[in-house]
Design a binder for these strands. Structure first.
Length: 501
RNA sequence: GGUUUCCUGGCCGAGUGGUUAGGCACAGCUCUGCAAAAGCUGCUACAGCGGUUCGAAUCCGCUGGAAACCUCCA
Protein backbone atom coordinates (compact mmCIF):
# COMPACT_ATOMS: atom_id res chain seq x y z
CA UNK A 1 0.00 0.00 0.00
CA UNK A 2 1.53 3.27 -1.09
CA UNK A 3 -1.06 5.93 -0.28
CA UNK A 4 -3.56 5.39 2.49
CA UNK A 5 -7.02 5.50 1.00
CA UNK A 6 -9.31 8.23 2.33
CA UNK A 7 -11.72 6.01 4.18
CA UNK A 8 -14.64 7.27 6.20
CA UNK A 9 -16.12 5.30 9.06
CA UNK A 10 -19.12 6.18 11.16
CA UNK A 11 -17.95 6.33 14.76
CA UNK A 12 -20.55 5.81 17.46
CA UNK A 13 -18.40 7.85 19.85
CA UNK A 14 -18.78 11.03 17.82
CA UNK A 15 -22.05 10.18 16.11
CA UNK A 16 -20.68 10.99 12.69
CA UNK A 17 -18.51 9.76 9.88
CA UNK A 18 -14.82 10.34 10.52
CA UNK A 19 -11.74 10.04 8.40
CA UNK A 20 -10.16 6.75 9.37
CA UNK A 21 -6.60 6.90 10.70
CA UNK A 22 -5.03 3.70 11.97
CA UNK A 23 -2.77 3.80 15.01
CA UNK A 24 0.00 2.11 13.05
CA UNK A 25 0.05 3.01 9.35
CA UNK A 26 -0.91 0.04 7.22
CA UNK A 27 -2.14 -2.03 10.17
CA UNK A 28 -5.55 -2.36 11.75
CA UNK A 29 -6.66 -4.06 14.94
CA UNK A 30 -10.37 -4.90 14.93
CA UNK A 31 -12.37 -6.57 17.68
CA UNK A 32 -15.94 -7.74 17.14
CA UNK A 33 -18.19 -9.17 19.83
CA UNK A 34 -18.98 -12.74 18.87
CA UNK A 35 -21.83 -15.05 19.78
CA UNK A 36 -22.79 -16.64 23.05
CA UNK A 37 -22.77 -20.32 22.14
CA UNK A 38 -25.74 -21.60 24.11
CA UNK A 39 -28.06 -22.30 21.16
CA UNK A 40 -28.18 -22.22 17.36
CA UNK A 41 -26.87 -18.99 15.91
CA UNK A 42 -29.68 -16.80 14.72
CA UNK A 43 -30.02 -14.80 11.58
CA UNK A 44 -29.42 -11.46 13.25
CA UNK A 45 -26.00 -12.66 14.36
CA UNK A 46 -25.34 -13.71 10.81
CA UNK A 47 -26.11 -10.26 9.49
CA UNK A 48 -23.75 -8.62 11.95
CA UNK A 49 -20.93 -11.02 11.14
CA UNK A 50 -21.56 -10.73 7.40
CA UNK A 51 -21.38 -6.94 7.74
CA UNK A 52 -18.07 -7.12 9.58
CA UNK A 53 -16.87 -9.71 7.10
CA UNK A 54 -17.43 -7.14 4.35
CA UNK A 55 -15.62 -4.50 6.36
CA UNK A 56 -12.74 -6.92 7.03
CA UNK A 57 -12.57 -7.94 3.37
CA UNK A 58 -12.58 -4.36 2.14
CA UNK A 59 -9.84 -3.32 4.57
CA UNK A 60 -7.76 -6.25 3.35
CA UNK A 61 -8.52 -5.39 -0.26
CA UNK A 62 -7.30 -1.82 0.04
CA UNK A 63 -4.05 -3.11 1.44
CA UNK A 64 -4.28 -3.11 5.22
CA UNK A 65 -2.84 -5.85 7.34
CA UNK A 66 -5.75 -6.57 9.64
CA UNK A 67 -5.84 -8.52 12.87
CA UNK A 68 -9.47 -9.42 13.27
CA UNK A 69 -10.41 -10.77 16.69
CA UNK A 70 -13.87 -12.17 17.34
CA UNK A 71 -14.61 -13.90 20.62
CA UNK A 72 -16.72 -16.86 21.58
CA UNK A 73 -18.66 -16.27 24.77
CA UNK A 74 -18.95 -19.49 26.70
CA UNK A 75 -19.39 -18.31 30.27
CA UNK A 76 -20.70 -15.48 32.37
CA UNK A 77 -23.55 -14.38 30.16
CA UNK A 78 -26.59 -14.52 32.40
CA UNK A 79 -30.24 -14.78 31.51
CA UNK A 80 -33.05 -12.68 32.93
CA UNK A 81 -33.35 -15.04 35.84
CA UNK A 82 -29.70 -14.64 36.69
CA UNK A 83 -28.81 -18.08 35.40
CA UNK A 84 -25.75 -18.63 33.27
CA UNK A 85 -26.84 -19.24 29.67
CA UNK A 86 -24.40 -22.08 29.25
CA UNK A 87 -25.52 -23.76 32.45
CA UNK A 88 -29.13 -23.40 31.45
CA UNK A 89 -28.44 -24.89 28.03
CA UNK A 90 -26.55 -27.74 29.67
CA UNK A 91 -29.41 -28.56 32.00
CA UNK A 92 -31.94 -28.55 29.20
CA UNK A 93 -29.84 -30.90 27.05
CA UNK A 94 -28.38 -32.83 29.98
CA UNK A 95 -24.85 -32.09 28.92
CA UNK A 96 -21.70 -30.64 30.36
CA UNK A 97 -21.66 -26.87 29.79
CA UNK A 98 -18.57 -27.26 27.67
CA UNK A 99 -20.36 -29.81 25.51
CA UNK A 100 -23.01 -27.20 24.89
CA UNK A 101 -20.33 -24.66 24.02
CA UNK A 102 -18.63 -27.08 21.67
CA UNK A 103 -21.83 -28.11 19.92
CA UNK A 104 -22.95 -24.58 19.17
CA UNK A 105 -19.47 -23.31 18.39
CA UNK A 106 -19.24 -25.93 15.66
CA UNK A 107 -22.72 -25.01 14.47
CA UNK A 108 -21.77 -21.37 14.41
CA UNK A 109 -18.63 -22.05 12.38
CA UNK A 110 -20.61 -24.16 9.92
CA UNK A 111 -23.10 -21.35 9.43
CA UNK A 112 -20.36 -18.77 8.96
CA UNK A 113 -18.88 -21.00 6.28
CA UNK A 114 -22.26 -21.34 4.59
CA UNK A 115 -22.46 -17.56 4.47
CA UNK A 116 -18.95 -17.60 3.01
CA UNK A 117 -17.39 -15.36 5.65
CA UNK A 118 -13.67 -15.37 6.28
CA UNK A 119 -12.60 -16.71 9.67
CA UNK A 120 -11.23 -14.09 12.05
CA UNK A 121 -7.50 -13.99 12.74
CA UNK A 122 -8.02 -14.98 16.36
CA UNK A 123 -11.14 -16.42 17.97
CA UNK A 124 -10.57 -16.44 21.72
CA UNK A 125 -12.92 -18.04 24.23
CA UNK A 126 -13.91 -16.52 27.53
CA UNK A 127 -13.21 -19.75 29.39
CA UNK A 128 -9.71 -19.82 27.94
CA UNK A 129 -8.93 -16.42 29.44
CA UNK A 130 -10.01 -16.66 33.04
CA UNK A 131 -6.53 -15.75 34.26
CA UNK A 132 -6.45 -12.60 32.16
CA UNK A 133 -9.86 -11.64 33.46
CA UNK A 134 -8.87 -12.17 37.06
CA UNK A 135 -5.81 -10.00 36.44
CA UNK A 136 -7.97 -7.26 35.04
CA UNK A 137 -10.30 -7.39 38.04
CA UNK A 138 -7.23 -6.97 40.23
CA UNK A 139 -6.03 -3.98 38.20
CA UNK A 140 -9.40 -2.33 38.56
CA UNK A 141 -9.43 -3.01 42.29
CA UNK A 142 -5.90 -1.62 42.60
CA UNK A 143 -7.07 1.60 40.99
CA UNK A 144 -9.87 1.82 43.50
CA UNK A 145 -12.64 1.58 40.94
CA UNK A 146 -14.27 -1.57 42.22
CA UNK A 147 -15.42 -2.93 45.57
CA UNK A 148 -15.96 -6.35 47.08
CA UNK A 149 -19.27 -7.58 48.45
CA UNK A 150 -19.51 -11.10 49.82
CA UNK A 151 -16.93 -12.47 47.44
CA UNK A 152 -18.27 -10.66 44.36
CA UNK A 153 -16.52 -7.67 42.84
CA UNK A 154 -18.52 -4.76 41.47
CA UNK A 155 -17.37 -1.96 39.23
CA UNK A 156 -17.98 1.41 40.84
CA UNK A 157 -19.62 3.38 38.07
CA UNK A 158 -20.27 6.68 39.89
CA UNK A 159 -16.69 6.84 41.10
CA UNK A 160 -15.41 6.04 37.62
CA UNK A 161 -17.67 8.67 36.07
CA UNK A 162 -16.30 11.20 38.53
CA UNK A 163 -12.68 10.41 37.75
CA UNK A 164 -13.04 10.23 33.99
CA UNK A 165 -15.46 12.95 33.01
CA UNK A 166 -17.32 12.33 29.76
CA UNK A 167 -16.27 8.72 29.35
CA UNK A 168 -19.20 6.88 30.87
CA UNK A 169 -22.01 7.28 28.36
CA UNK A 170 -19.74 8.00 25.40
CA UNK A 171 -20.86 4.84 23.60
CA UNK A 172 -24.53 4.65 24.44
CA UNK A 173 -25.31 8.30 25.11
CA UNK A 174 -26.70 7.36 28.48
CA UNK A 175 -26.51 9.77 31.38
CA UNK A 176 -25.56 8.31 34.72
CA UNK A 177 -28.07 10.36 36.70
CA UNK A 178 -30.87 8.94 34.57
CA UNK A 179 -29.90 5.41 35.42
CA UNK A 180 -31.19 5.94 38.94
CA UNK A 181 -34.67 6.62 37.74
CA UNK A 182 -34.56 4.45 34.66
CA UNK A 183 -33.65 1.21 36.29
CA UNK A 184 -36.76 -0.61 37.32
CA UNK A 185 -37.28 -3.76 39.29
CA UNK A 186 -33.85 -4.46 40.66
CA UNK A 187 -33.14 -8.15 40.70
CA UNK A 188 -30.60 -9.46 43.19
CA UNK A 189 -28.88 -6.13 43.04
CA UNK A 190 -29.01 -5.45 46.74
CA UNK A 191 -25.24 -5.89 46.95
CA UNK A 192 -24.58 -2.99 44.62
CA UNK A 193 -23.99 0.57 45.77
CA UNK A 194 -25.57 2.00 42.65
CA UNK A 195 -27.91 0.45 40.11
CA UNK A 196 -25.46 1.19 37.29
CA UNK A 197 -22.69 -0.75 39.01
CA UNK A 198 -22.04 -4.15 37.49
CA UNK A 199 -20.29 -7.35 38.48
CA UNK A 200 -16.82 -8.02 37.17
CA UNK A 201 -16.44 -11.14 39.31
CA UNK A 202 -19.35 -13.09 40.67
CA UNK A 203 -19.21 -15.49 43.57
CA UNK A 204 -20.68 -18.81 42.56
CA UNK A 205 -24.08 -19.86 43.78
CA UNK A 206 -24.82 -23.54 44.43
CA UNK A 207 -26.43 -23.97 41.00
CA UNK A 208 -23.48 -22.59 39.05
CA UNK A 209 -21.48 -25.19 37.15
CA UNK A 210 -18.77 -23.17 35.42
CA UNK A 211 -16.63 -21.92 38.26
CA UNK A 212 -13.01 -21.01 38.91
CA UNK A 213 -10.82 -20.09 41.81
CA UNK A 214 -9.96 -16.46 42.35
CA UNK A 215 -8.46 -14.34 45.15
CA UNK A 216 -11.98 -13.33 46.17
CA UNK A 217 -14.15 -16.42 45.83
CA UNK A 218 -14.89 -19.46 43.75
CA UNK A 219 -16.94 -17.96 40.98
CA UNK A 220 -16.91 -16.70 37.42
CA UNK A 221 -16.13 -13.48 35.55
CA UNK A 222 -18.74 -10.89 34.67
CA UNK A 223 -19.96 -11.05 31.09
CA UNK A 224 -18.55 -7.69 29.96
CA UNK A 225 -15.09 -8.46 31.23
CA UNK A 226 -14.05 -11.07 28.68
CA UNK A 227 -14.08 -8.61 25.79
CA UNK A 228 -12.03 -6.09 27.75
CA UNK A 229 -9.46 -8.69 28.75
CA UNK A 230 -9.19 -10.44 25.40
CA UNK A 231 -9.10 -7.32 23.25
CA UNK A 232 -6.32 -5.99 25.46
CA UNK A 233 -4.42 -9.25 25.24
CA UNK A 234 -4.50 -9.57 21.46
CA UNK A 235 -4.81 -6.02 20.22
CA UNK A 236 -3.31 -3.90 22.97
CA UNK A 237 -4.77 -1.40 25.39
CA UNK A 238 -5.90 0.88 22.59
CA UNK A 239 -6.70 -0.47 19.15
CA UNK A 240 -8.46 0.77 16.01
CA UNK A 241 -11.95 -0.64 15.59
CA UNK A 242 -14.38 -2.22 18.00
CA UNK A 243 -17.59 -3.58 16.54
CA UNK A 244 -20.78 -5.31 17.46
CA UNK A 245 -24.52 -5.19 17.16
CA UNK A 246 -26.43 -2.07 18.04
CA UNK A 247 -28.07 -3.74 20.99
CA UNK A 248 -24.71 -4.26 22.67
CA UNK A 249 -24.10 -0.52 23.06
CA UNK A 250 -25.68 -0.60 26.46
CA UNK A 251 -24.77 -2.00 28.82
CA UNK A 252 -22.14 -4.28 27.27
CA UNK A 253 -19.97 -1.82 25.37
CA UNK A 254 -20.45 1.02 27.79
CA UNK A 255 -19.21 -1.21 30.59
CA UNK A 256 -16.40 -2.54 28.48
CA UNK A 257 -15.09 0.98 27.97
CA UNK A 258 -15.41 1.65 31.70
CA UNK A 259 -13.47 -1.52 32.54
CA UNK A 260 -10.66 -0.77 30.14
CA UNK A 261 -10.37 2.75 31.44
CA UNK A 262 -10.56 1.39 34.92
CA UNK A 263 -7.72 -1.02 34.25
CA UNK A 264 -5.37 1.08 32.15
CA UNK A 265 -6.63 4.64 32.20
CA UNK A 266 -7.04 4.73 28.43
CA UNK A 267 -9.75 4.28 25.87
CA UNK A 268 -9.88 0.80 24.30
CA UNK A 269 -10.88 1.60 20.73
CA UNK A 270 -10.69 4.69 18.54
CA UNK A 271 -13.64 3.76 16.34
CA UNK A 272 -16.77 2.05 17.56
CA UNK A 273 -18.80 0.51 14.77
CA UNK A 274 -22.31 -0.77 15.35
CA UNK A 275 -24.44 -2.74 12.94
CA UNK A 276 -28.18 -2.40 12.91
CA UNK A 277 -30.87 -4.97 13.53
CA UNK A 278 -32.55 -7.38 11.21
CA UNK A 279 -36.31 -7.06 11.41
CA UNK A 280 -39.04 -9.55 10.76
CA UNK A 281 -42.56 -8.27 10.31
CA UNK A 282 -41.24 -4.80 11.05
CA UNK A 283 -39.95 -5.81 14.47
CA UNK A 284 -36.63 -6.89 15.82
CA UNK A 285 -36.06 -10.60 15.55
CA UNK A 286 -36.22 -12.16 18.94
CA UNK A 287 -36.13 -15.73 20.04
CA UNK A 288 -38.04 -15.08 23.20
CA UNK A 289 -41.23 -13.83 21.54
CA UNK A 290 -41.15 -16.16 18.56
CA UNK A 291 -40.66 -13.42 16.00
CA UNK A 292 -37.77 -15.18 14.38
CA UNK A 293 -36.60 -17.15 11.40
CA UNK A 294 -33.50 -19.29 11.46
CA UNK A 295 -30.94 -19.37 8.67
CA UNK A 296 -31.77 -23.01 8.07
CA UNK A 297 -35.48 -22.28 7.76
CA UNK A 298 -34.62 -19.60 5.25
CA UNK A 299 -32.47 -21.99 3.19
CA UNK A 300 -35.02 -24.77 3.24
CA UNK A 301 -38.15 -22.66 2.89
CA UNK A 302 -39.73 -24.24 5.95
CA UNK A 303 -40.68 -21.03 7.73
CA UNK A 304 -44.19 -19.65 7.70
CA UNK A 305 -42.66 -16.24 6.98
CA UNK A 306 -41.40 -17.08 3.49
CA UNK A 307 -43.02 -18.63 0.44
CA UNK A 308 -39.95 -20.50 -0.73
CA UNK A 309 -36.34 -21.40 -0.01
CA UNK A 310 -33.61 -18.83 -0.52
CA UNK A 311 -29.99 -19.74 -1.05
CA UNK A 312 -27.32 -18.49 1.38
CA UNK A 313 -25.79 -16.25 -1.25
CA UNK A 314 -29.16 -14.77 -2.19
CA UNK A 315 -29.64 -13.96 1.50
CA UNK A 316 -26.19 -12.45 1.73
CA UNK A 317 -26.89 -10.35 -1.37
CA UNK A 318 -30.15 -9.24 0.25
CA UNK A 319 -28.12 -7.99 3.21
CA UNK A 320 -25.64 -6.24 0.94
CA UNK A 321 -28.40 -4.21 -0.70
CA UNK A 322 -28.94 -2.33 2.55
CA UNK A 323 -26.38 -0.32 4.49
CA UNK A 324 -25.07 -2.00 7.62
CA UNK A 325 -26.28 0.87 9.83
CA UNK A 326 -29.87 0.63 8.61
CA UNK A 327 -32.43 -1.76 9.94
CA UNK A 328 -33.31 -4.35 7.34
CA UNK A 329 -36.77 -5.83 7.21
CA UNK A 330 -36.97 -9.42 6.05
CA UNK A 331 -39.86 -9.83 3.66
CA UNK A 332 -40.65 -12.42 1.06
CA UNK A 333 -40.84 -9.75 -1.65
CA UNK A 334 -37.54 -8.28 -0.60
CA UNK A 335 -35.83 -11.66 -0.63
CA UNK A 336 -37.29 -12.52 -4.01
CA UNK A 337 -36.07 -9.26 -5.51
CA UNK A 338 -32.64 -9.87 -4.01
CA UNK A 339 -32.51 -13.41 -5.32
CA UNK A 340 -33.25 -12.26 -8.85
CA UNK A 341 -30.78 -9.45 -8.57
CA UNK A 342 -28.14 -11.85 -7.30
CA UNK A 343 -28.63 -14.39 -10.09
CA UNK A 344 -28.55 -11.61 -12.65
CA UNK A 345 -25.36 -10.01 -11.42
CA UNK A 346 -23.60 -13.40 -11.29
CA UNK A 347 -24.71 -14.07 -14.86
CA UNK A 348 -23.48 -10.63 -15.85
CA UNK A 349 -20.09 -11.48 -14.40
CA UNK A 350 -19.94 -14.73 -16.36
CA UNK A 351 -20.70 -12.87 -19.59
CA UNK A 352 -18.16 -10.20 -18.74
CA UNK A 353 -15.33 -12.64 -18.05
CA UNK A 354 -15.92 -14.24 -21.45
CA UNK A 355 -15.92 -10.99 -23.40
CA UNK A 356 -13.03 -10.50 -25.77
CA UNK A 357 -12.16 -7.45 -27.77
CA UNK A 358 -9.49 -7.13 -30.37
CA UNK A 359 -6.79 -4.72 -29.35
CA UNK A 360 -6.05 -3.87 -32.97
CA UNK A 361 -9.40 -2.12 -33.23
CA UNK A 362 -8.17 0.71 -31.03
CA UNK A 363 -6.12 3.78 -31.61
CA UNK A 364 -5.57 4.42 -27.92
CA UNK A 365 -8.07 7.21 -27.45
CA UNK A 366 -10.73 7.12 -24.77
CA UNK A 367 -14.30 6.48 -25.90
CA UNK A 368 -17.44 7.76 -24.18
CA UNK A 369 -18.13 4.22 -22.93
CA UNK A 370 -14.60 4.03 -21.54
CA UNK A 371 -15.23 7.19 -19.59
CA UNK A 372 -18.61 6.00 -18.32
CA UNK A 373 -17.24 2.66 -17.17
CA UNK A 374 -14.22 4.24 -15.52
CA UNK A 375 -16.43 6.62 -13.60
CA UNK A 376 -18.68 3.75 -12.48
CA UNK A 377 -15.63 1.94 -11.14
CA UNK A 378 -14.75 5.11 -9.25
CA UNK A 379 -18.27 5.25 -7.84
CA UNK A 380 -18.11 1.67 -6.61
CA UNK A 381 -14.93 2.41 -4.69
CA UNK A 382 -16.22 5.76 -3.47
CA UNK A 383 -19.27 3.97 -2.08
CA UNK A 384 -17.14 1.53 -0.10
CA UNK A 385 -14.84 4.31 1.06
CA UNK A 386 -17.85 6.14 2.45
CA UNK A 387 -18.56 3.99 5.49
CA UNK A 388 -18.67 0.72 3.55
CA UNK A 389 -21.75 1.51 1.50
CA UNK A 390 -22.28 -1.77 -0.28
CA UNK A 391 -25.61 -0.59 -1.72
CA UNK A 392 -23.86 2.14 -3.68
CA UNK A 393 -21.22 -0.29 -4.91
CA UNK A 394 -23.88 -2.72 -6.12
CA UNK A 395 -25.71 0.06 -7.94
CA UNK A 396 -22.48 0.91 -9.77
CA UNK A 397 -21.89 -2.70 -10.71
CA UNK A 398 -25.43 -2.97 -12.02
CA UNK A 399 -24.84 0.02 -14.24
CA UNK A 400 -21.62 -1.55 -15.49
CA UNK A 401 -23.71 -4.64 -16.17
CA UNK A 402 -25.70 -2.71 -18.70
CA UNK A 403 -22.51 -2.22 -20.74
CA UNK A 404 -21.62 -5.88 -20.38
CA UNK A 405 -24.95 -7.04 -21.77
CA UNK A 406 -24.86 -4.55 -24.60
CA UNK A 407 -21.40 -5.70 -25.60
CA UNK A 408 -22.41 -9.30 -25.25
CA UNK A 409 -25.49 -8.81 -27.44
CA UNK A 410 -23.51 -6.71 -29.87
CA UNK A 411 -25.87 -3.87 -29.21
CA UNK A 412 -22.76 -1.92 -28.43
CA UNK A 413 -19.85 -2.29 -30.84
CA UNK A 414 -16.80 -3.89 -29.25
CA UNK A 415 -14.79 -1.00 -30.64
CA UNK A 416 -16.61 1.27 -28.17
CA UNK A 417 -14.77 -0.16 -25.18
CA UNK A 418 -11.00 -0.21 -25.02
CA UNK A 419 -9.31 -3.49 -24.09
CA UNK A 420 -7.65 -2.05 -21.01
CA UNK A 421 -10.96 -0.67 -19.76
CA UNK A 422 -12.61 -4.03 -20.34
CA UNK A 423 -9.82 -5.79 -18.48
CA UNK A 424 -10.10 -3.36 -15.61
CA UNK A 425 -13.86 -3.90 -15.46
CA UNK A 426 -13.35 -7.67 -15.40
CA UNK A 427 -11.00 -7.41 -12.45
CA UNK A 428 -13.12 -4.89 -10.56
CA UNK A 429 -16.34 -6.81 -11.11
CA UNK A 430 -15.10 -10.12 -9.84
CA UNK A 431 -13.11 -8.47 -7.06
CA UNK A 432 -16.20 -6.78 -5.70
CA UNK A 433 -18.43 -9.81 -6.07
CA UNK A 434 -16.11 -12.44 -4.63
CA UNK A 435 -13.36 -10.71 -2.64
CA UNK A 436 -15.25 -7.80 -1.11
CA UNK A 437 -18.88 -8.87 -0.98
CA UNK A 438 -17.97 -12.46 -0.14
CA UNK A 439 -20.41 -13.92 -2.64
CA UNK A 440 -19.92 -17.26 -4.36
CA UNK A 441 -21.26 -18.62 -7.62
CA UNK A 442 -23.65 -21.27 -6.39
CA UNK A 443 -24.47 -22.54 -9.86
CA UNK A 444 -20.88 -23.69 -10.25
CA UNK A 445 -20.79 -25.73 -7.07
CA UNK A 446 -21.13 -29.48 -6.90
CA UNK A 447 -18.94 -32.30 -8.11
CA UNK A 448 -21.24 -33.26 -10.98
CA UNK A 449 -20.75 -29.94 -12.77
CA UNK A 450 -18.95 -31.67 -15.62
CA UNK A 451 -21.69 -34.23 -16.03
CA UNK A 452 -24.42 -31.62 -16.07
CA UNK A 453 -22.43 -29.56 -18.51
CA UNK A 454 -22.10 -32.54 -20.85
CA UNK A 455 -25.76 -33.43 -20.64
CA UNK A 456 -26.83 -29.88 -21.28
CA UNK A 457 -24.59 -29.59 -24.31
CA UNK A 458 -26.15 -32.75 -25.75
CA UNK A 459 -29.70 -31.60 -25.09
CA UNK A 460 -29.12 -28.16 -26.54
CA UNK A 461 -27.42 -29.66 -29.58
CA UNK A 462 -30.47 -31.81 -30.25
CA UNK A 463 -32.66 -28.76 -29.83
CA UNK A 464 -30.50 -26.78 -32.24
CA UNK A 465 -30.87 -29.54 -34.84
CA UNK A 466 -34.63 -29.56 -34.37
CA UNK A 467 -34.71 -25.83 -34.83
CA UNK A 468 -32.76 -25.87 -38.07
CA UNK A 469 -35.34 -28.38 -39.32
CA UNK A 470 -38.09 -26.09 -38.03
CA UNK A 471 -39.27 -28.89 -35.78
CA UNK A 472 -40.80 -26.48 -33.28
CA UNK A 473 -42.59 -29.23 -31.40
CA UNK A 474 -39.35 -30.92 -30.34
CA UNK A 475 -37.61 -27.60 -29.80
CA UNK A 476 -40.34 -26.26 -27.56
CA UNK A 477 -40.72 -29.50 -25.67
CA UNK A 478 -37.04 -29.36 -24.72
CA UNK A 479 -37.29 -25.74 -23.70
CA UNK A 480 -40.49 -26.18 -21.68
CA UNK A 481 -39.36 -29.36 -19.97
CA UNK A 482 -36.07 -27.77 -18.95
CA UNK A 483 -37.98 -24.75 -17.71
CA UNK A 484 -40.14 -27.03 -15.58
CA UNK A 485 -37.07 -28.38 -13.79
CA UNK A 486 -35.72 -24.89 -13.26
CA UNK A 487 -33.40 -24.40 -16.20
CA UNK A 488 -33.81 -21.38 -18.40
CA UNK A 489 -32.72 -21.66 -22.01
CA UNK A 490 -31.36 -18.41 -23.38
CA UNK A 491 -31.25 -17.98 -27.15
CA UNK A 492 -28.75 -15.31 -28.09
CA UNK A 493 -27.10 -14.13 -31.24
CA UNK A 494 -23.92 -15.93 -30.29
CA UNK A 495 -25.72 -19.18 -29.65
CA UNK A 496 -27.59 -20.81 -26.83
CA UNK A 497 -26.78 -20.65 -23.16
CA UNK A 498 -28.60 -21.79 -20.07
CA UNK A 499 -28.89 -21.02 -16.39
CA UNK A 500 -30.52 -22.47 -13.34
CA UNK A 501 -33.48 -20.33 -12.37
C1' G B 1 -41.81 6.83 32.46
C1' G B 2 -36.60 8.11 30.45
C1' U B 3 -33.17 8.09 26.10
C1' U B 4 -32.65 7.54 20.91
C1' U B 5 -33.68 6.39 15.91
C1' C B 6 -36.66 6.00 11.72
C1' C B 7 -40.97 7.34 8.22
C1' U B 8 -38.41 7.70 0.40
C1' G B 9 -42.24 5.80 -5.90
C1' G B 10 -46.49 -0.77 -6.49
C1' C B 11 -42.42 -3.41 -3.28
C1' C B 12 -37.15 -3.56 -1.36
C1' G B 13 -33.67 0.06 -0.57
C1' A B 14 -29.32 4.16 -1.35
C1' G B 15 -29.01 9.23 -0.79
C1' U B 16 -28.01 14.71 4.26
C1' G B 17 -28.92 21.63 0.67
C1' G B 18 -29.15 22.37 -5.97
C1' U B 19 -27.68 16.89 -10.53
C1' U B 20 -31.41 9.94 -13.22
C1' A B 21 -29.18 5.85 -7.08
C1' G B 22 -29.83 0.73 -7.97
C1' G B 23 -32.81 -3.72 -7.77
C1' C B 24 -37.65 -6.18 -8.21
C1' A B 25 -42.51 -5.57 -10.36
C1' C B 26 -45.28 -3.25 -14.36
C1' A B 27 -46.11 -1.12 -19.58
C1' G B 28 -44.32 -0.18 -24.64
C1' C B 29 -40.57 -1.17 -28.26
C1' U B 30 -36.19 -4.05 -30.42
C1' C B 31 -34.58 -9.05 -31.05
C1' U B 32 -37.11 -14.10 -31.78
C1' G B 33 -40.53 -19.28 -35.64
C1' C B 34 -43.32 -18.15 -30.89
C1' A B 35 -41.31 -17.31 -26.29
C1' A B 36 -37.63 -16.65 -22.70
C1' A B 37 -33.13 -14.10 -21.93
C1' A B 38 -30.97 -9.42 -23.03
C1' G B 39 -31.20 -4.21 -24.49
C1' C B 40 -33.82 0.49 -24.90
C1' U B 41 -37.80 3.73 -23.22
C1' G B 42 -41.49 4.96 -19.60
C1' C B 43 -43.27 5.02 -14.36
C1' U B 44 -39.29 10.44 -11.02
C1' A B 45 -41.11 9.54 -4.79
C1' C B 46 -39.39 11.57 -0.25
C1' A B 47 -45.54 10.89 6.49
C1' G B 48 -48.39 15.82 7.41
C1' C B 49 -48.06 21.04 8.66
C1' G B 50 -45.04 25.28 9.44
C1' G B 51 -40.11 27.70 9.41
C1' U B 52 -34.81 28.84 7.68
C1' U B 53 -32.79 29.42 2.54
C1' C B 54 -32.17 32.04 -3.94
C1' G B 55 -33.10 26.74 -3.46
C1' A B 56 -34.78 21.13 1.26
C1' A B 57 -36.23 14.32 0.75
C1' U B 58 -31.72 16.48 3.01
C1' C B 59 -31.43 21.89 8.30
C1' C B 60 -35.08 23.61 12.50
C1' G B 61 -39.95 23.18 15.02
C1' C B 62 -44.71 20.95 15.77
C1' U B 63 -48.23 16.84 14.76
C1' G B 64 -49.03 11.78 13.45
C1' G B 65 -47.06 6.75 12.85
C1' A B 66 -43.32 2.88 13.69
C1' A B 67 -39.13 0.86 16.08
C1' A B 68 -34.88 0.23 19.40
C1' C B 69 -32.46 0.72 24.13
C1' C B 70 -33.23 1.41 29.46
C1' U B 71 -33.72 -6.05 31.31
C1' C B 72 -30.86 -11.52 28.17
C1' C B 73 -30.30 -10.68 22.87
C1' A B 74 -25.92 -9.27 16.90
Amino acid sequence: MTEPRPLKIYNTLSGKKEEFRPITPGHIGMYVCGPTVYSDVHLGNCRTFCSFDNIYRYLLHIGYKVRYVRNITDVGHLTDDGEDRMTKGAKVAQLEPMEVAQRYTVGFHDMMRIFNTLPPSIEPRATGHIIEQIEMVQQILDRGLAYERNGSIYFNVPKFAGEYAGVYGSVSGRILEDLYTETRELKSQEEKNHPADFAIWMKARPQDLMIWNSPWSVGFPGWHLECSAMSTKYLGKTFDIHGGGNDLKFPHHENEVAQNHGACGCHPANYWVHTNMLLLNGKKMSKSDGNTISPTELFTGTSEHTSKAYSPMAVRFFMLMAHYRSTLDITDDGLMAAEKGFLKIMETNRLLQNLVVNARDFDGSETPSDRAISSLIQEAYAGMDDDFNTAIAIASLNEMGSFVHKLSNQQLATSEVSPWVLDRMKVVFSTFLFDIFGLADESATGSDTGTVEGLMNLILEIRAQARTQKDWGTSDKIRDTLSAVGITVKDGKEGVSWAKA
